[in-house]
Design a protein around this nucleic acid. Sequence first.
DNA 1: AGCATATAGTTTGATAGTCAAAGTAATTGT
DNA 2: ACAATTACTTTGACTATCAAACTATATGCT
Lengths: 138, 138
Amino acid sequence: MKDIEQLNHSIIEFYDKLSSWEHAVVREKNFSLAQIHTIEVLGSHGAMRMKELADRLGITTGTLTVQIDKLVNAGFIARRPHESDRRSILVDLTDSGRHLYREHDDLHLALTQDITANLNKDERRILQLCLSKMNNEF
Amino acid sequence: MKDIEQLNHSIIEFYDKLSSWEHAVVREKNFSLAQIHTIEVLGSHGAMRMKELADRLGITTGTLTVQIDKLVNAGFIARRPHESDRRSILVDLTDSGRHLYREHDDLHLALTQDITANLNKDERRILQLCLSKMNNEF
DNA sequence: AGCATATAGTTTGATAGTCAAAGTAATTGT
DNA sequence: ACAATTACTTTGACTATCAAACTATATGCT
């Protein structure tokens, strides 16, 4: 098999395994993937408009409105008016939402520590470099 | 920021970007993520029982039954009896399903080529090594 | 052998996620 | 000033999903 094909399938396998892990973690806590993903985006980026959030999540604003309603009811997210554009609404994490974000991010960190435990310093450095380069190419 | 945290967030970003890419590719062809994922698993692994496939996909067999019904109707998958266990059913790709699998896999390959274009030979080698090691640790 | 238990798959009923399209309100551009 | 655009919400239809009940087969125990 060509190197590039092997790399391709390793990437797909890595993606699948991450996906299964996330799925299991999320279901165990009785959240949905969509909900946690929303929390993750807001937690890492900060408050943003509905439209921007919908674009980042890859869903329509119609779908997002419903999702945000639920997360607002659950106390994780708050809506507030946009300062300069009265059509827009900013959504942001509440304290409770931020707590949930940190909790979830810690799980990710623990996973990252586990799966990179067998990499030496150089390998870890190059891996970081490769990921940065690849993330820039999307 | 600690190295491990940076690595963690780069992995999450990579995962998110792959996820968006897959989502866009799949919707463009009017399939669902679930359907293509099923095709991918069968394509890379070969025929398997419903239970095993459901486990790999992270869904219940009830959900899978419905999915497979649709894919059988669409001509991508065929059911056949298990040789030694009459409770079991083997699902496998048809020729049309294999064609779809290769087509999708080629898209993945093209993406992999794109995002690794800026990596030199050594970086690519170490990336492959890291992915293999990480995939083994899940 | 015979029966209880476990396993594989399907069906059903309920719920959540999704989109497209229509509707409301505010902004922008000419 | 007003037409076109943009941001968000609502609505209706559809799909994915699970849990639980159900059928058929296999396995294990006495």
